[in-house]
Write a protein that binds this DNA or RNA. Structure first.
Lengths: 343, 343
DNA sequence: TTGAAAGCGCTAACAC
DNA sequence: GTGTTAGCGCTTTCAA
C-alpha cells in the first residue's frame, strides 16, 4: 500500500502538496497537479481513510442498525440507505440485531469505536436506553419510533394503512374482523392497531377485543394467533383477518390452510407489507404495501442533510418527521364473507 | 468522546500505562489496573479504532461483497458471515453490487481505503479483474468461483445438487426435461448445467440442447425462458423443468400459471435454492436446498484462520476448497408426467 | 512496573 | 504555490 509520501516523492513534491493536489486541485499549479495525479495513478494510490479520518475528525461514515436483515422489508430499507449513502459520498456500516438488546448494544459499541457521524436505526424497545452509549450522535429513526424527541423519524403512515385495510374489509361486508397485531411495545404495531380500531368505530362497527391477538412478529406467532382465532365457534369466528406484518401473515395463511379454510371464500386476509411471497402465493394476497426502499433513501438523505448543517455550523435543523403513505393493493385474498349476517 | 489520555489523567498514570492496563492487563500492577479500569468505566471510554488501527496496522475488519442483498440466499450468506466475524472479534463491512462491475469496483476502492484484513466475495465475471485493485488481500470466494488459484473457495456441491434434482425427475418417468440455467459465465450455472447433463446421459436419457435456455438469473428471465419452453408444441414440450436459481424459479412458476399449466400434473418443477416462497406457494416446491448460513459462517471461519496464520508468521496455509452438500427437498411440485410416452 | 518519546498516514496552519 | 511543522489517538519501543 503506497502512502501519500510515496506519491509525493515520485512527483517531487512535499506530502502536503500531494495531498492538496488530490483533494483541493485548485490550490495547486496545473503542472504540479498533473505530476501528482500521474504519480498517484501509477502507484495505485488510495488514501488511507483511517489516517484521513483521524486527522480530519470526520469519517464520512454512518451506522445503520436494522433488526432483521433476513426480512425483505429490512433488506430493502438497508439497500435504500446504502444506495443513498453512496450517492452522498458516505459509507454505511450495516448491523443486524435480531431484535436483541445485547446485540444492539454490541453493535453500538463497535460502531462507536469507528466514529460514525450519524446513525440510522430501526429501534427496538431497548433502543432508547442503548442510545445513551452514543451521546451526541445525530440519529434518524427508521420505520419505528422510540419517542425520543429531537430525533428525525422516517416512517410510514401506519394508521392510514391500517384504516385503509380495515375499510376495505368493512366495505366487503365483514362484521367480525380479527387482527393479529405485533407486540405493542413497538410503535408500528400500536399505530396499526389504532388505525384498525378507529376505522371500525368510525364505521359504526363493533371492536371485539377478543378478536385481537398479539404476536412477536414472527411467522410462528402469526400461525398460533390465527389458529386460536380461527378455531373459535363458527358464530363468533372472524371472517376476515388483518395481520400486522409480513412474517405473521405467512403464519396466518398457513394456519388457515391447516384448518382447511378457503381463502378468500371462508376467510379474507389482508397483510401489512408486500412481498414476493404475498404476490405469488395462492391466492395472491391483498396487502398494505410500504415504500421500503424510499424509506431507506429518505432516512439517509435527512441524516446527511443534518450532518451538512452541523458541519457548516448552522443551527441544528429541527428534527423532521417524515411520513410516507402506504398503498392498499387489492389482490385475491379478500372477498365478501360467505354468509352475510342479517343486518 | 474521551480519549485514553483522559482516562490516564483521571487515573493518575501515563497514557502508555492506561493503554496497557486496558489491552495487556498482566503488564500492569493490580492496583494501577483497577484505577485505570475505573476511570475508563467512569468516562465511558471506548477506544478510537481509527487511531488504534493506524498504529497497529491492523483493523480487525473484513470486507464482504455480495451481489444481491435482496435475494434471501445472499442475505443469509451475509448474515452467516457477519455472525461468524463477530464471534471472531472482527467487524464485517457489507457491500452490495447488484452484479454490476462498476459498483463492485467502487466497493473495492472504498473497502481498500478502510484497510480490511481480508475479503469474502461472491464473485461476478468481472471480479477476477477487479480484484487487482486489492493486491495481497486474503480472499475467500463464496458460493461461486473465479478460477483464481491460491484463493480459498466455499461453495456448494452444485453438480451433486443438479444430479439429484435430475435423477428425481427421471425417476418419476420424465423423458423431456428442460432446464433454465443461469448465464454460463457464472460457475454455479455451469456446474448445475453439467450435473443436469451428466445425470441425463448416465441414465441413458437424451440431452436435448433446445430444451436448455439461459437466463440472467432474474425472475423475468426465468419467466421468459419458461414461456418459450412451455409454448413448444405438446409433442416436444418439456414435461418437467429444472430451474437453476431461486429468482428464475419464481418466473417459471408464473409462466406456467399464465399458460394455465397445472403444477405438478402438467408440469413438474424443481428449483435450486429453497426459500420461504418455495415453501408456501401452491403447490409447495420441490427444491435443491443450500445451507446458505453455514456457507457464510465457513467462509468467515476460513478467512479468519488464514489471517491468524499470516499474523503468526506461519507459512500461508494452502487455500482450502470447501464444498457443502445440498439437500433435495421433495414437496409437491413434482409428479410423474401426465401421459407417459410408451417405453 | 511505569513513563517518555516516537510514529502510523494524513491534512491544516503557518510560513515563505 | 509550495514546503515545514504539528498533531489527530493510539500503542510500542526503550529507558529508568
Amino acid at each position: 500500500m503506497s502512502s501519500i509520501q510515496d506519491v509525493a516523492t515520485l512527483a517531487n513534491v512535499s506530502a502536503a502538496t500531494a495531498s492538496r493536489a488530490l483533494s483541493r486541485p485548485d490550490m495547486v499549479a496545473q503542472t504540479t497537479r498533473e505530476r501528482v495525479l500521474n504519480a498517484a495513478q501509477q502507484l495505485g494510490y488510495q488514501p488511507n481513510m483511517l489516517a484521513r479520518s483521524l486527522r480530519q475528525r470526520e469519517t464520512r461514515t454512518i451506522g445503520v442498525i436494522v433488526t432483521d436483515i433476513l426480512n425483505p422489508f429490512h433488506a430493502m430499507l438497508a439497500k435504500g440507505v446504502q444506495d443513498a449513502a453512496d450517492r452522498h459520498g458516505y459509507t454505511a456500516f450495516l448491523f443486524n440485531t435480531d431484535e436483541d438488546a445485547g446485540k444492539e448494544r454490541r453493535a453500538l459499541d463497535t460502531l462507536r469505536g469507528h466514529l460514525p457521524q450519524g446513525l440510522i436505526v430501526v429501534p427496538t424497545p431497548h433502543t432508547h436506553e442503548n442510545l445513551k452509549l452514543v451521546p451526541n450522535l445525530p440519529i434518524v429513526e427508521l420505520d419505528r419510533v422510540t419517542g425520543n424527541t429531537g430525533v428525525t423519524t422516517v416512517t410510514v403512515d401506519n394508521i392510514g394503512g391500517a384504516r385503509a385495510a380495515t375499510a376495505h374489509l368493512i366495505g366487503l361486508g365483514h362484521t367480525r374482523i380479527g387482527m393479529i397485531v405485533g407486540k405493542l411495545d413497538i410503535t408500528t404495531a400500536v399505530e396499526r392497531h389504532a388505525g384498525f380500531r378507529q376505522m371500525l368505530e368510525e364505521s359504526g362497527q363493533t371492536y371485539f377485543p377478543e378478536l385481537v391477538l398479539p404476536g412477536q412478529h414472527r411467522e410462528k406467532d402469526g400461525r398460533e394467533a390465527a389458529l386460536r382465532l380461527l378455531s373459535l365457534p363458527p358464530a363468533v369466528r372472524p371472517t376476515a383477518l388483518f395481520v400486522g406484518n409480513n412474517e405473521m401473515t405467512v403464519g396466518a395463511v398457513l394456519a388457515a390452510r391447516e384448518l382447511g379454510l378457503k381463502i378468500p371464500e371462508e376467510l379474507s386476509i389482508v397483510g401489512f407489507d408486500d412481498s414476493r411471497w404475498a404476490q405469488t402465493m395462492t391466492p395472491p394476497l391483498t396487502v398494505v404495501a410500504q415504500p421500503a426502499y424510499d424509506l431507506g433513501v429518505l432516512a439517509c438523505d435527512h441524516l446527511v442533510t443534518q450532518l451538512g448543517h452541523m458541519q457548516s455550523g448552522r443551527a441544528r435543523a429541527s428534527p423532521a418527521r417524515v411520513q410516507l403513505p402506504t398503498e392498499l393493493i387489492l389482490r385475491q385474498s379478500t372477498a365478501p364473507p360467505a354468509c352475510v349476517p342479517t343486518a
